[in-house]
């Protein structure tokens, strides 16, 4: 090519800035297939992202882990169950837990991921240090996960345990006892008795419990 294309003169960081504005992962993938510079730009755009949401996308362990690995500066990660069904498993959460961004995450949503268990959640949460909001509603986690959350997330402010039917009062007490900044808790659909919830309010009067 004799004349350099005008867009080719843009520095990679500016290309990355353009790619950050893409809302679709399809477009990102297509852009990475244009040329080597754009491929690098796409990687850098992922590294710049602070929020990454896979809502509405049919993601599997491999693709999710690869994207999260490139997103070094991520603070908010959403991997909710989409209309396509859940394909994320404990193996995926384990791989994600080794990503650089995990210790900086302030918000994680694993809403409705029926393929995950305590094993994956414990691996992921035990590596977070700055978590403030956690949504594990609609999953099959037990108190084991809640004990890990209580130990690893001292800054936790909001937790959604919507329809987590295997959670008991022991796990909730551990949360309230150790997460001193906890302000809000959604326990709709759990099997925890009302008396227990009243006891939680005695321990932490400022706590908002959504039933």
């Amino acid at each position: 090519m004799d004349v350099e294309a005008e867009i080719d003169r843009l520095p990679i960081d500016l290309l990355a800035h353009i790619f950050v504005l893409f809302t679709s992962f399809t477009d990102l993938a297509q852009a990475s297939g244009v040329c080597k510079k754009w491929k690098q730009g796409v990687k850098e755009s992922l590294a710049r992202r602070h929020n990454l949401s896979f809502a509405g996308w049919k993601m599997d362990d491999d693709s999710t882990a690869r994207l999260v690995f490139h997103a070094y500066n991520l603070t908010k990660l959403e991997i909710p169950r989409s209309c396509w069904g859940c394909q994320i498993t404990d193996a995926g959460l384990l791989r994600i837990s080794f990503a650089k961004c995990i210790s900086n995450l302030t918000s994680i949503s694993l809403w409705g991921l029926t393929g995950i268990t305590d094993e994956g959640v414990v691996q992921l949460i035990s590596r977070t240090r700055s978590l403030q909001r956690l949504n594990v509603g609609g999953t099959f986690i037990t108190d084991e996960s809640l004990f890990t959350i209580a130990r690893s997330c001292p800054k936790l402010e909001t937790i959604v345990l919507w329809s987590c039917r295997h959670v008991t009062e022991n796990g909730l007490f551990a949360l309230v006892d150790q997460c001193l900044k906890l302000k809000s808790m959604n326990v709709w659909g759990t099997r925890v008795p009302v008396e227990c919830l009243n006891n939680l309010l005695i321990v932490s009067p400022a706590l908002q419990i959504k039933v």
Binding site: F25, A29, G56, S63, S82
Partner: peptide
């Protein structure tokens, strides 16, 4: 080879 890499991130499409 680079072009024919599977586009794994977007299996929804």
């Amino acid at each position: 080879e680079e072009k024919l890499e599977p586009l794994r991130n977007i299996t929804a499409d």
